[in-house]
């Protein structure tokens, strides 16, 4: 102990800092960094989970490049992202903006919007799957039929299935985004709005020149957070198209589902690892690009 006692205050702080940091560093090394590196190495190998790992060079990536399913899946993943993020952000902002002004039943309404975020995705996906069934089971088609409209093929159509799956995915994330937007709106001092009222500028000017610019940090956070969410979409798709995951005809299959099937249906671990590396690269590039575009210019 005399060694520790002889240290300066600064040195003691360093000792303690490293003592506390050691646990997460060890954890991340074993649970995160080692598997990540291993996956990158595996993407250059061929392995069926049981046999020996064989070095195949860039073969997995070449195969991926020439795989039409991959390009279809790649496109699907970006459709989830490009539709999902803006729609969910605009919706949640509009709801948060109105909810912020509402006094009546404020707490109840907020809880109702937040509820889907707390619900299990699997349970939710199955309930929506039931909504989408044809007559006489599905809620939506029963409703359409009772009004005399033709049935809509929600999950069995190559054009309708993806939007039909995206809808509950957006709905599920809405509660969280609304809460974050409301916190951002609350942080804007009321005197900014009062000053604008005295200046007599229009509601649109207040929105575009005061509210939205001051919400920028909130928007950046939600864009990145929500984009990562949509790029990694899996549960909704897997559960709602459970008879033929990613179907019909791969029209709803996202990258994560393709990775899952390659790894645990085809047991082509090297090929799956290559897809994982590509997904990782996409996530990294999209997140960095968004941060760079949306960050405050000095």
């Amino acid at each position: 102990m005399s060694f520790y006692r002889n240290l300066s205050i600064r040195q003691k702080q360093v000792v303690w800092a490293w003592a506390f940091l050691a646990v997460p560093i060890l954890f991340y090394s074993v649970i995160r960094f080692y598997p990540t590196l291993n996956a990158i190495i595996l993407s250059f190998q061929s392995w069926n989970l049981l046999g020996p790992r064989e070095w195949v060079g860039a073969e997995n990536y070449i195969k991926l490049w020439h795989d039409p399913v991959f390009w279809k899946v790649f496109r699907n993943t970006f459709v989830y992202l490009i539709l999902g993020t803006p729609i969910s952000l605009v919706l949640s902002f509009v709801i948060a903006y109105q909810l912020d002004k509402t006094r009546l039943l404020h707490g109840t309404l907020r809880a109702l919007y937040f509820l889907p975020f707390l619900t299990s995705t699997v349970a939710m996906a199955w309930v929506w799957r039931w909504f989408y069934q044809p007559v006489p089971i599905g809620l939506f088609n029963n409703f359409l039929a009772s009004l005399g409209f033709a049935q809509v093929n929600f999950l069995n159509s190559t054009t309708n299935a993806l939007p039909a799956i995206l809808l509950p995915a957006i709905w599920a994330g809405l509660g969280f985004q609304i809460i974050i937007f409301m916190a951002g709106l609350r942080a804007i001092p009321t005197s900014y709005y009062e000053a604008a009222r005295i200046d007599g500028v229009s509601g649109w000017t207040i929105m575009s020149e005061i509210t939205l610019p001051l919400l920028k940090p909130t928007i950046v956070f939600l864009v990145v957070f929500s984009s990562i969410g949509f790029l990694r979409i899996f549960d909704q798709v897997f559960n709602m198209t459970t008879n033929n995951p990613g179907g019909p005809l791969d029209s709803t299959k996202p990258l994560v589902l393709m990775i899952y099937q390659t790894a645990f249906s085809s047991f082509d671990m090297g090929y799956a690892a290559a897809q994982t590396v590509v997904l990782f690269a996409i996530l990294l590039v999209v997140s960095l690009a968004q941060l760079r575009i949306l960050r405050d210019k000095p």
């Binding site: 009062e194 005295i198 020149e209």
Partner: peptide, 29 residues
């Protein structure tokens, strides 16, 4: 409405917009 009263107000926390230059802030009115 406040805008029709021909008044101007200075607030305790100044209420100047952090994302606008001084020129834009002054010109906002």
């Amino acid at each position: 409405e406040p805008k029709d009263r021909d008044i101007a107000m200075v607030f305790q926390n100044y209420a100047i917009y952090p994302h606008m230059s001084v020129r834009k802030n002054i010109g906002f009115g």
